[in-house]
């Protein structure tokens, strides 16, 4: 018996478009909030990947800031004469710098975890679809088993065992996410598998790997890639949540989630900036990713119908 899982709202199909509206990238780009989301994403990517070099401080180098400057409200000046526009955290880090660097950690974790999980999931899904039978049953049983656990619990316990670190968080996210890709890939590849051209290729004696990667993969990857867009957002959220629970990235390399978490206790004292600003950055990032993913799905679905 397959166990129910928490339903993923992102995987509920968006509105079915009326058939006469065909997939049209230009039209999608015209959507106002789509445009905003795309612009926001580009800006965030640029900020996260490039701007750290222009940040006022390197928040990972402990000698560049001082605990004497800790918990300064936004707009104050630190001892070095730096104006901290978004305040400082409990260690005296400038929040602007911390957010820029934190964004980079969040993006890195999201992208790395997703691409790894995607590769594993796609391979497993292809194998299951290609060979079917026992192999399929075994792999899907494993997928069901993994998906039966709450992802946050698996990641939490796993990280408790293997310790903290950016690499370890990525591993934990891959462990909980690959199964989703495997399932979607298998479903999509199954459809292709039954098509005539695949049969023809098999009859011609092409090796299995060639059929898998040359025929099944390109024709069924679309839906998986769209889901992957949304799952980047998931991975980033998961990383933030794990860091909030104290098992994510190390305190010396705060991600956005860890910055939010470390401000929790100060929130009650009205020192809001430590949690508020990194959280906003996180929100904009996740929201833009989800928005783009949603529109891509919409486009894909309307092309199918």
């Amino acid at each position: 018996m397959t166990k129910p899982r928490p339903i993923d709202p992102t995987l509920v199909p968006p509105l079915v478009e009326t058939p006469q509206r065909r997939f049209n990238l230009r039209r999608i780009k015209r959507r106002p909030n789509m445009k905003t989301a795309l612009i926001a994403l580009v800006v965030i990517l640029a900020a996260g990947l490039l701007l750290p070099f222009a940040a006022p401080q390197n928040p990972y180098d402990l000698s560049t800031f001082s605990v004497m400057d800790n918990r300064l409200p936004p707009g104050e000046r630190s001892l070095d004469g730096l104006t901290v526009w978004l305040g400082t955290d409990s260690q005296g880090r400038d929040m602007v710098s911390a957010i820029l660097y934190g964004m980079r950690v969040s993006l890195l974790v999201g992208l790395a975890a997703t691409s790894l999980a995607l590769s594993i999931g796609v391979t497993v899904g292809l194998l299951a679809a290609m060979f079917g039978g026992r192999i399929d049953a075994l792999l899907m049983r494993l997928v069901d088993f993994i998906l039966g656990f709450p992802s946050i619990l698996v990641a939490l316990v796993l990280l408790a065992v293997i310790g903290r670190g950016v690499d370890k968080v990525i591993i934990a996210i891959v462990v909980v996410q690959w199964a989703t890709y495997a399932r979607i890939m298998r479903a999509a590849a199954m459809v292709e598998r039954r098509k005539e051209y695949v049969e023809a290729a098999e009859n011609l004696g092409y090796p299995s790997w060639r059929i898998m990667f040359r025929h099944l993969l390109p024709n069924s990857i679309g839906s998986v890639l769209v889901v992957a867009t949304i799952y980047v957002a998931h991975a980033i959220t998961l990383e933030a949540t794990l860091s909030f629970l104290g098992v994510g990235v190390p305190v010396t390399q705060p991600s956005l989630g860890l910055l939010v978490a470390s401000g929790f206790e100060f929130l009650m004292s009205g020192e809001y900036w430590i949690s508020l600003f990194p959280g906003l950055a996180l929100l904009v990032l996740i929201f833009s990713l989800n928005l783009v993913g949603d529109r891509l799905r919409e486009a894909l679905d309307s092309r199918r119908s």
Binding site: A233, T237, A240, T241, F244, G257, V260, A261, G263, F264, L267, S275, G279, L282, L283, I286, F287, N290
Partner: peptide, 9 residues
């Protein structure tokens, strides 16, 4: 999209 823990905070 809003991370649950941040929303709570």
């Amino acid at each position: 999209s809003i991370p649950n823990f941040w929303k709570g905070m």
